[in-house]
């Protein structure tokens, strides 16, 4: 995936440090430039450029009709997007924060997720719902929820979450181009993470539905996504000192779920830990652990463990570091993978 980037006329392009926020904004811009049916709508997305500035410049470049400040009502925004999609547009909705997306749940569950199915395929809804999610930015109450479990439990939705700058651009482009509705979860604490990246020649990435091994290893597999990927990468580096060579799998999409890549990795390593911020009870980790057990039981040297947020409402910002899975907690879980049986 790290082939040298070139421009359309074949000249090499120098990649420069870019943030995930910039890559997301560029993905919106390029999608709108390429396809006149792409419309962005949400709260403060126009003149202000969004509270995270992801939509900065879109209203100026494409006009208020293409990037629209809506009234402050999430069900209305998503409901209107449904009607726009019914008429052939390709709306991209911005929910301002994870917890502010909840008023739109009925539209999402009863209509967005079901329209293709309930019309026998006659009326798919190509809607992308962008949701900044997760904690770690010192947000006060209602600004740091991990809401992915609700979405992944709803058949009909794709649930996509990037963890790298390349993926932020590539997965958002693909989400907008998809004829299925996508809940696009943006890890807000990675908005300002940087990587070398070229807007003129963004790197091609694996398609939605494919997990990617971010770090190959032999001892155990860390399975994660979005905001917890950097945590797992750091843990894997630290684990070398303990003699563990950890493989890190970035899921990139919870739906579709890449059973193949996950199972292949766990069969190789024989041990697995799932890491996410979302509360553990009823969270994605339980589903993932069950799928691994169903597929890899005879390869497992230890039970699949989970490192997750506590089963509590998201804590106040001064306490969030105790809640969020960190490197130490990941390493503690790795230590509990019954290594003594090997010796």
């Amino acid at each position: 995936m790290t082939t040298a980037a070139v421009t359309a006329d074949g000249r090499p392009v120098k990649a420069k440090p870019a943030t995930m926020a910039q890559a997301l904004g560029r993905a919106l811009r390029d999608s709108m430039a390429e396809d006149p049916t792409v419309h962005v709508l949400g709260e403060d997305v126009g003149t202000l450029g969004g509270v995270f500035r992801i939509t900065d410049g879109l209203a100026k470049e494409f006009g208020d009709d293409r990037c629209t400040d809506t009234p402050l009502a999430e069900a209305g925004i998503l409901g209107a997007a449904v009607g726009m999609a019914m008429y052939g547009l390709r709306p991209v909705v911005e929910m301002q924060f994870d917890a502010f997306a909840y008023p739109a749940f009925e539209q999402l569950m009863s209509h967005v997720a079901k329209m293709r199915n309930r019309t026998g395929g006659a009326m798919p809804l190509p809607i992308t719902v962008r949701v900044p999610y997760g904690g770690g930015i010192g947000g006060v109450e209602h600004h740091s929820d991990s809401s992915e479990a609700y979405y992944m439990a709803t058949p009909g939705l794709h649930v996509v979450t990037p963890a790298t700058v390349d993926d932020a651009y590539g997965l958002l482009r693909e989400s907008i181009a998809s004829d299925d509705p996508v809940v696009f979860l943006e890890p807000k604490r990675l908005y300002w993470s940087k990587a070398d990246w070229s807007p003129e020649a963004p790197a091609a990435v694996e398609p939605i539905g494919r997990a990617v091994v971010r770090r190959p290893g032999r001892s155990a597999t860390l399975i994660t996504y979005g905001p917890s990927l950097p945590v797992c990468m750091e843990a894997a580096e630290a684990a070398l000192a303990e003699g563990w060579d950890l493989e890190v799998v970035d899921l990139r999409s919870l739906v579709p779920f890449d059973d193949e890549t996950v199972a292949a990795s766990v069969r190789r390593t024989g041990r697995a830990v799932v890491v996410h911020e979302s509360p553990g009870f009823g969270g994605p980790g339980g589903e993932i652990a069950a799928r691994i057990t169903e597929r890899c039981f005879h390869h497992l040297e230890a039970p699949v463990l989970r490192v997750a947020g506590f089963d509590i409402p998201y804590p106040p910002p001064m306490l969030e570091r105790h809640h969020l899975p960190g490197v130490d907690r990941v390493l503690d879980a790795v230590a509990r993978l019954q290594w003594e049986a090997d010796s």
Binding site: H39, A75, G76, G79, A80, V82, G83, M86, E106, Q107
Partner: peptide, 15 residues
Amino acid sequence: TQLPHAVGLAHAARL
């Protein structure tokens, strides 16, 4: 819940 759909569709048609 169909009312916002009608609004979005009519809005899209007008655009």
